[in-house]
Amino acid sequence: MSAPEREHTEGAGFAAYVFDAYGTLFDVHSAVRRHQQALGAHHQAFSDLWRTKQLEYTWVRSLAGQYRDFAALTEDALDHCLARFPQIDRGLKADLLHAYRRLDCFAEVPEVLTRLRARGARIAILSNGTPAMLEDAIAAAGIGSLIDDVFSVDALKIYKTAPAAYALLTDRLGLAPDEIAFQSSNRWDIAGAKAFGFTCHWINRSGAPDEYADLAPDAILPTLKGLTT
């Protein structure tokens, strides 16, 4: 059965469910939406570019061995966007950065995490975000009581998809890769996690075409609800 046809089976018995944060639990475009009127007609293109550059900078920094933390890269990417869209008021920068620290979580997140915890599974985050960024996002979403562990690659000074980033989970949780289910909306992240040996669920919210065929997810789900149904 091909990956798009696979369905998650409830009761799979994973000891831990680990989630990427940005784009998976938290809506990365909600920061721009809060200031949509001020940003004007180009708000979606602006938001897409901000996200693209933010990720690009993590890969370039990791390959070059020149780590710069995710908060700094988020600001660097925003500066690039403001330069690319000179019609947008640079005075919005502080407001946009503040909004990014307090992103909306996707609507299904609290219920899904609650149901997974009821199975006895451990719930964790593995993110490129700094500890302070993740603390702010979790608090703003009100989901702190549903998460057991938060792991940031900042401890390693290298970004996903470096194998060392995924090894944080096996090392800190004391679990084998096949005891961990890993969820991400980022296909490149799923590829890295699959290469490491996790069972992977790609949360394909946008209906994007698949890629990295040799590192296929174990399931493709439109939202996190598919983990509990």
Results as ranks from 00 to 15, higher is better:
Met1Lys: 12
Glu5Ser: 15
Arg6Gln: 15
Glu7Lys: 14
Gly11His: 04
Gly13Trp: 01
Ala16Val: 03
Ala16Gln: 10
Ala16Phe: 10
Ala21Ile: 06
Ala21Cys: 13
Gly23Asp: 08
Thr24Val: 05
Asp27Ala: 01
Val28Glu: 12
Ser30Arg: 00
Ala31Trp: 00
Val32Tyr: 11
Arg33Asp: 12
Gln36Trp: 05
Ala38Ser: 11
Ala41Met: 07
Phe46Asp: 01
Phe46Ile: 00
Ser47Val: 11
Ser47Leu: 10
Leu49Thr: 09
Arg51Asp: 12
Arg51Lys: 14
Arg51Thr: 10
Thr52Asp: 15
Glu56Trp: 03
Val60Thr: 13
Ser62Met: 01
Leu63Glu: 12
Leu63Phe: 14
Ala64Leu: 15
Gln66Trp: 00
Tyr67Val: 04
Arg68Leu: 15
Asp69Phe: 08
Phe70Glu: 07
Ala72Thr: 14
Glu75Ile: 04
Asp76His: 09
Ala77Tyr: 03
Ala77Leu: 06
Ala83Cys: 12
Phe85Asp: 03
Phe85Val: 02
Asp89Asn: 09
Gly91Lys: 04
Gly91Pro: 03
Leu92Tyr: 08
Lys93Phe: 05
Leu97Asn: 11
His98Asn: 13
Ala99Leu: 04
Arg101Met: 12
Ala107Asn: 06
Glu108Ile: 00
Glu108Gly: 04
Glu108Val: 07
Glu111Val: 10
Glu111Ala: 15
Val112Arg: 12
Val112Met: 07
Val112Glu: 07
Arg117Met: 11
Ala118Ser: 15
Arg119Ala: 14
Arg119Pro: 05
Ala121Thr: 09
Arg122Leu: 14
Arg122Met: 12
Ala124Arg: 01
Ala124Val: 03
Ala124Lys: 05
Ala124Tyr: 00
Ala124His: 02
Leu126Phe: 06
Leu126Tyr: 08
Ser127Met: 06
Gly129Tyr: 06
Thr130Ile: 04
Thr130Gln: 10
Thr130Cys: 05
Pro131Met: 09
Ala132Cys: 06
Met133Lys: 05
Glu135Lys: 07
Asp136His: 12
Asp136Lys: 06
Asp136Ser: 13
Ile138Trp: 02
Ala141Tyr: 03
Gly142Phe: 04
Gly142Cys: 11
Ile143Tyr: 00
Gly144Val: 05
Ser145Trp: 05
Ser145Val: 09
Ser145Pro: 03
Ile147Trp: 04
Asp148Ala: 07
Ser152Tyr: 09
Val153Ile: 14
Leu156Gln: 01
Tyr159Met: 06
Lys160Asn: 00
Lys160Ile: 01
Leu168Asn: 07
Leu169Lys: 01
Leu169Phe: 02
Thr170Val: 01
Asp171Lys: 12
Ala176Trp: 00
Glu179His: 13
Glu179Val: 01
Ala181His: 07
Ala181Thr: 05
Ser184Val: 02
Ser184Leu: 06
Ala191Lys: 10
Gly192Val: 06
Ala193Thr: 02
Lys194Asn: 11
Ala195His: 10
Phe196Gln: 11
Gly197Met: 07
Gly197Leu: 14
Ser206Arg: 15
Ser206Ile: 08
Pro209His: 08
Asp210Gln: 13
Glu211Thr: 14
Ala213Asp: 14
Asp214Ala: 15
Ala219Trp: 13
Thr223Lys: 11
Leu224Lys: 09
Lys225His: 14
Leu227Pro: 06
Leu227Ser: 00
Thr228Trp: 11
Thr229Ser: 15
